[in-house]
Amino acid sequence: MHIVVCIKQVPDSAQIRVHPVTNTIMRQGVPTIINPYDLFALEAALKLRDLHGGKITVLTMGPPMAEESLRRALSFGADRAVLLTDRIFAGSDTLATSYALSEAIRKIGESFGPVDIVFTGKQTIDGDTAQVGPGIAKRLDLHQLTYVAAVQELDLKAGSIAVERRAEGGVQVLSTKLPCLITMLEGTNEIRRGSIEVALNAARAEIVTWSAAAAGIGNTAKCGLKGSPTVVKRVFAPKPRSEKAFQIDLSGLGPDAIAESAMAEIFKRLPSLEKELTQTLQG
């Protein structure tokens, strides 16, 4: 069995700062992490390997420094890492990103053996679209299983898989054929700690690094800015409301008195609410 897990290196969002005057994102010195959602995908893949054997290839598209995230993924137990890096990918939107990644997955299949399952996270914390997974599935004609909470059954001989998928209002149990693409739901598992031995190997491992050409991507018009149908035309700060929040007077008051004035102010502005609350609570 051969599984590819797509991971993305993202800025640690909690520490992002926006320049107060120019409104631009200050990237310098912002630490990066593996997109947290992708770790659920990686652990799900590791669990399948525990049960069925096989190999896991982690793949990322990003700047050369994204190698760091791949090494980390190796230290959790992935077998092989591929870094797709080329200037022509800069400015990719999700259509262009899914094109580049799907071509790389094709190449991974040719180079290291046919791929049975592709895993992605549910979404990234910076792009935050949840669209790259479905994009890859469509381009590679993989059966698409999104928001998967658990893999129920994998039958490699029959080439079939059954999963629980989070749907609106309930859980769908779906079965389909391999190869498939799974976007893994958050909170479904916890990433394991690799052994010291695995970690040591990860530090020394060779990272397979491909340019667009090396990955067999001939059509550069489908990459980066050129291959992105969407255009970010404007970046702006939200308008404050015309008036700032009305501040409840605090002068010398304790919490009880402040709470009383806050409540009075709320009911003054929402006269119907008091009645509704009293009714629902007593009814």
Binding site: P11, V18, N23, I25, I125, G127, D128, V232, K233, F236
Partner: peptide
Amino acid sequence: FGGSLLCTIYT
């Protein structure tokens, strides 16, 4: 991303 900006996107 960044926590305080909006962007307008066109196709």
